[in-house]
Design a protein around this nucleic acid. Structure first.
Lengths: 242, 242
DNA sequence: TCAAAAGTGTTAGGGATACACCCATGT
DNA sequence: ACATGGGTGTATCCCTAACACTTTTGA
């Protein structure tokens, strides 16, 4: 379909990459009171997959993760963390990848490296929805946001990976101050509370939440936000790291 | 030195194992009020290393970890969990492994698979010190307990791996009931408190600790333990999972 | 009888919960 | 003015920290 040079990821032997090792990403965003994640889709197939990448032989693992994340989102300085390694043999099912390549006009050799068994390191990222510019990878045709609450079926064990990422996000949320990575630079207290409630999937008490957040001493109060609504204008806040 | 057949781990191409991927273990034990970990040592070298292993092509990652752990400790039903993947390029330093092999009478080829770059999945295990029977692996000459508080220098980045494992153990300790894996079947409240204090490296209040543990409803009180000391005999407790 | 260690009780403080009350804003 | 949502105040509860007191054991 296009005349682009074949990207090196599709070369049959995977030269230059660490063999058998991949990175899968659960990239969280938050918009209109919904948690979302980025998924890749493939033309002429009904497959959906998590963004993924490989590690160059000259690269640190974590640097590879940052690189691929930037390739998919255009963003570099992002919260990004490992959460689990998926290494079951049952992950090894070459059929979907073969279907994807064939739909792309590539007829892979039986021994094509992308059809072999992969162990995958799971990373989850938290990004400002408004800043990301999702970009598909060389094999996919779209990279788009999907509501976490109503995910369609995913390839292979990617559903499991998302689930584990969400669990990690939930337990990390109240130990570290990571939630702010999902919001814009300025936000109202209601925005923040809604984010927490969505992630934790439980209602929180308004006054207690406000006091708790303010008592952390990490929020700077800015001007009020006049939304046009017939009610008191809420303050805007900004996250200050120190 | 011995006439044993060369184990397959030492075969030059690593056939049968996933390439470039290893497992490193931080195996915690507790004895005489000290946290300890298992380390391998190598004759004719002054190198100390964490127990490690590789994943067979036919094996799930987590199953490989259980297998290797059993090979080193003789124990199967053990608390064992991933905590981090170490994938920096700076990990790749073939010198120590070459020294180990040469001290063993093996002159490895330049391309021997053990001399290549490895990404390593870190697992930590908690085991009953009194039950483990440490067994060296095919390349090492001893597998012994070392006090965590006074660790000698370790190979490569193994010090970093231990540090990260300890951090994970600390944060997991008060979220899950994992501490009991480090004690014998029966123990006194003082034993348990000492374990917690040693892991967290901070003193805890006696009465509060006792009440907190008892309120969890997971301890069964047994007979008293007459130690011969000139003081009230403490109860023994047993951990009950439900 | 005494010291040492174990078990239990009591009080005070911090944080969370739940509810109430005022304030600002645009219709 | 008034409905709506935002900010703050207050009473209660619970968990923990800190300390005190009692009990048991063997010298």
């Amino acid at each position: 379909m296009s005349n682009q040079p074949i990207p090196e990821e599709i070369s049959p032997d995977g030269a230059g990459f660490l063999p058998g090792l991949a990175i899968d990403f659960v990239i969280f965003g938050f918009h209109q009171n919904q948690l979302k994640i980025l998924l890749l889709s493939y033309r002429n197939t009904d497959l959906l997959a998590l963004p993924a990448g490989f590690i160059q032989e000259t690269e640190n693992l974590n640097d590879a993760a940052r690189r691929v994340l930037a390739e998919r989102t255009g963003l570099y300085d992002i919260f990004l963390e490992q959460f689990y390694v998926f290494g079951d043999r049952s992950r090894h099912d070459p059929a979907p990848m073969r279907a994807i390549m064939e739909a792309k006009g590539i007829v892979p050799d039986e021994n094509h490296w992308l059809l072999r068994r992969f162990v995958s390191v799971g990373y989850y990222a938290l990004i400002d929805f408004t800043k990301a510019v999702p970009i598909p990878d060389p094999l996919s045709d779209s990279c788009e946001w999907y509501d976490l609450a109503s995910l369609p079926a995913l390839m292979l064990d990617h559903q499991t990976i998302v689930q584990k990422a969400l669990e990690t996000l939930r337990t990390d949320l109240d130990r570290k101050l990571i939630g702010f990575n999902l919001l814009s630079d300025t936000f109202t207290m209601a925005d923040l509370q809604c984010l927490y409630e969505t992630i934790l999937d439980q209602p929180l008490h308004r006054s207690g939440f406000q006091r708790k957040m303010l008592s952390l001493g990490i929020l700077e109060r800015l001007d009020k936000k006049f939304s046009g609504g017939a009610h008191k204008a809420p303050y805007l806040y900004r996250f200050v790291s120190n």
